Simulated assay, not measured.
Amino acid sequence: MTASLVFFPVDNGDMALIKLDNGQHILIDINIRAAADDPDDDTYDVAADLKERLPRDDQDRLYVDAFLLSHPDGDHITGLSRHFYLGPPEDFPEDNEDDLILIREMWSSPIVFRRASATHKLGEEAKAWKKEARRRVALYREIGASVGDGDRILLMGKDKDGKTDDIMDIVIEQYELITRVNKGEEGQFEGRLLAPMVVEDDDEELIDLLEKNNSSVIIRFSIAGDGYKDMCRFLTGGDAGVAIWERLWNILDEDGNTDWLSYDVMETPHHCSWRTLSYDRWSELGEKVKVCEEARSALSQIRDGAVIVASCKPIKKDDSNPPHERAKREYVSMVEGECDRFICTSEYSADEDRALEFKIYHAGTAKKLGMTAKKTAAVVGVSGIATAARAHGRK
């Protein structure tokens, strides 16, 4: 099978799907709005598109091998209860009238949820995810590694106060590598966990920083293509704010590990928000704002021909933030000023009536490859795929 990377058009939200060489799928966030589920609305039907791409098990259930939730904001988890099964797999409904998707393995961060709870109330979908994560952790504590598909969970980062010390076999610590999905084979990918950061209770300055800046899960994936390792590096960071990227750069730079941030494809944090790149308020300073150089350095570690994807509504000057036109200009400068290497998912979908999809293959050198009839991108190991347009409501 051919590995791929898909970005669904979900307005200001995130929803990406990694398909590995061996056919396993990793879903990162969802934002399946009610309008997208309405057959009488012309909003792109991302749920139908997703389900067409997923395999079925021997019980005819759709499934993802892993579902990573970067953080529990609504625009990263909307549609969870409508389209995914939550609960013990043995209780999966036999009729399955809604064609629910089984999550074989959850990837979730206890720290991100703890900070979200401390700063604002969780929505109903986030509460449902948290409940299911707790069920899976409790089951692991009860029966250990014998848990099966639909019961597995990996925790992205340690919890504080030693709360995860007894289950470290399912905990990925900061800077560690994830090397397989749902007990599958190794060699298909590596995912380095770069955030969230664990802090001590007495570090009030850092706690304040993390509460004011969304401390999402940040992972840099290295994905194999055509059997060759490291053909596509993909950096994803949810809604992580400027202070997170600044701090991450300073740590990795001091340790000589800035290559951990290098990428062929990056999804802009927080939907191309200006607040990812600067502490300055555009509303107060306008064009006099200054970019945080450390945050910019963290987000600009491109490999030859890298592409930056903004998962957001169409980007317009003087519109609400996010997205922000000044942020777009900064990202375009990161890809050597080549506008065609910066792609907004909503704008792409409006032009092409499809999700933005990259095919990951084996290529020894950078190669100019067609994204559309009018747009091109030079990418190492990544090419645009011309897929058939998907009609709304297609099942």
Rank of each mutant, 00 (worst) to 15 (best):
V171Y: 06
A195R: 12
I170E: 05
H120W: 15
M156W: 03
L209V: 14
L154Q: 02
L154V: 15
S108G: 09
Y140M: 08
G191L: 12
L122W: 14
L122Y: 00
L177G: 00
L177I: 01
F113N: 11
I111D: 07
E190G: 06
P196S: 06
K127D: 08
S146C: 08
H120C: 14
D161K: 13
M156C: 05
Q174C: 02
I167M: 03
S108V: 15
I111T: 13
L122F: 05
R115W: 14
K160P: 01
D149P: 14
G157P: 08
V137T: 15
E205F: 06
E132C: 06
T179Q: 14
S117E: 11
A138W: 09
I170Y: 01
L194I: 03
S108K: 13
L206R: 12
V112L: 02
G148I: 03
D169Q: 09
K163G: 09
K131V: 10
Y175H: 14
A128V: 00
V181E: 08
E142Y: 10
A118C: 09
S108C: 15
A133Y: 12
T179F: 05
I167E: 12
R192G: 02
E173G: 05
E173Q: 13
V147Q: 11
I172H: 07
A118K: 14
H120V: 14
I111Y: 13
V171K: 01
I167L: 09
D151P: 02
D159C: 03
G157H: 01
L122N: 04
P110W: 01
K127I: 13
R152Y: 02
L206E: 15
A118H: 10
G144I: 06
E205M: 12
F189H: 02
Q174T: 06
K158H: 10
W129G: 02
V199T: 11
L155Q: 01
D203L: 03
D201I: 00
R134G: 07
Q188P: 12
V137P: 02
R134F: 12
W129S: 03
A116Q: 13
M156N: 02
D169I: 03
D159I: 04
G184K: 04
I153P: 07
G144F: 13
A145P: 05
I172C: 05
E200A: 10
V147E: 10
T179C: 00
D169G: 11
S108A: 15
R152S: 06
E176D: 10
I143S: 02
K121T: 06
T119S: 15
L177M: 06
F113H: 13
E205Y: 09
S108Q: 13
G187Y: 04
A138K: 05
G148K: 09
D151A: 15
I207Y: 12
A133I: 05
I172W: 00
E200Q: 05
V112N: 15
L210M: 15
R135T: 01
I170A: 10
A195V: 00
V181N: 10
